[in-house]
Design a protein around this nucleic acid. Structure first.
Lengths: 195, 195
DNA sequence: CCCGCGCCTTAACCCAGGTCAAGCCAGCAC
DNA sequence: GTGCTGGCTTGACCTGGGTTAAGGCGCGGG
């Protein structure tokens, strides 16, 4: 078993027989990415996903009007991929970019389907993954509905302390739905208020 | 089969043997709700969900600070329930309220689990449901990130034409993340601009 | 060493939408 | 009928964050 920690992590989501995990490891491929390199670019087929072994990624949606907004950051142990587009079998509208030199473990959708056909555990895992993704998005929805940009900012750092120092300010802003300038203002406001 | 249309709808999500559906119908119970009546109130155990047979519902989140925001509207053929809380086995933080006299088909989580244990089709269906819910939330996230309140409004009516005339303005506002007053202003602005 | 570039801040000005308060109108109870 | 209540609008005023533009600062490359 090449990735025992990853196996344990997945096994907490749904029961996963080690021999099934072995099959998965057999079809997965490691990939290294330089800083700024893209794991996926808009227009690509959304036919693969990966687990981050090392590094941080940002999922960027480039809107028709040219604006960039950030859907998520992903670090060690988390999944990267154009999940929504994969579910809809559409080409990706998302770029997934390494913010540091990174390593990931890549799975092709076809291979994963084969695994699913071989053992129900994979379908159960996929369900859990869908549910967890749902929970993340719902939390975010709620923040947009109820919180100011400043409150969203403090929430963000509460929930992602491990990202401190690893992602540029402007990306945090794009994640919060505000501009770089706005974020800078908010931060200086807080500095003044509380020391 | 008491609800053939519902059966067909579900069968489009995932293959569903009629005999399994028969079992589901056997454990489900119809419930009627008056206008303003709650299917679920905050604090209730999130141990049941339902399909709307007739009527419209709103899912209201009451924030700690007292503000109400609306997570979703649900009409005929759609699911109601505190989905996020159910996944986390927590008490509901959401009120689900009928906006019209309504009828629903109620399933208890325990009964559904029994169905799941009897046939994989239910797990597959649950996965599809999770994925669809995810897609909805992601679309909403994107709207908050990229669109103004006015743009979100026109999107809303594009995507939910069947709700026209059935839900109060203030609820639309609470769904968009703005106030009743703000929504009224936006509407009058558009009226002036385009006739 | 200097230059350029990427990232961040600051300031001036603007505008969408919030807040508060008054008023309107339709429907319902009496 | 009168009066009340709930849903919506309108106006005056305020504020958070957008926009534009001008630096500042650290760093890598020449």
């Amino acid at each position: 078993m090449r990735f025992p920690k990853l196996f344990e992590r997945l096994a907490t989501l749904a029961p996963l027989p080690p021999e099934e995990w072995a099959k998965a490891e057999a079809v997965a491929k490691e990939q290294s990415l330089a800083k700024r390199e893209l794991f996926l670019r808009p227009g690509d087929a959304a036919d693969r996903f990966a687990v981050v072994l090392q590094g941080v990624f940002r999922g960027v949606r480039v809107s028709p009007r040219g604006g960039e907004s950030i859907k998520a950051f992903r670090a060690e142990g988390e999944l990267i991929g154009a999940y929504a587009e994969m579910l809809q079998r559409r080409p990706s509208m998302t770029a997934i970019e390494a913010l540091e030199p990174s390593r990931v473990l890549v799975f092709h959708a076809r291979d994963f389907q084969t695994l699913e056909q071989g053992h129900v555990c994979w379908e159960r895992l996929a369900r859990r993954v869908a549910e967890q993704h749902f929970l993340l998005k719902e939390r975010r929805e709620q923040e947009f509905l109820e919180l100011s940009a400043e409150e969203r900012l403090v929430n963000f750092w509460d929930e992602h302390p491990h990202l401190k120092g690893r992602i540029p300010q402007r990306d945090v802003a794009a994640y919060l739905g505000i501009t770089e300038v706005g974020l800078s203002r908010i931060m200086s406001r807080r500095r003044k208020r509380s020391g």
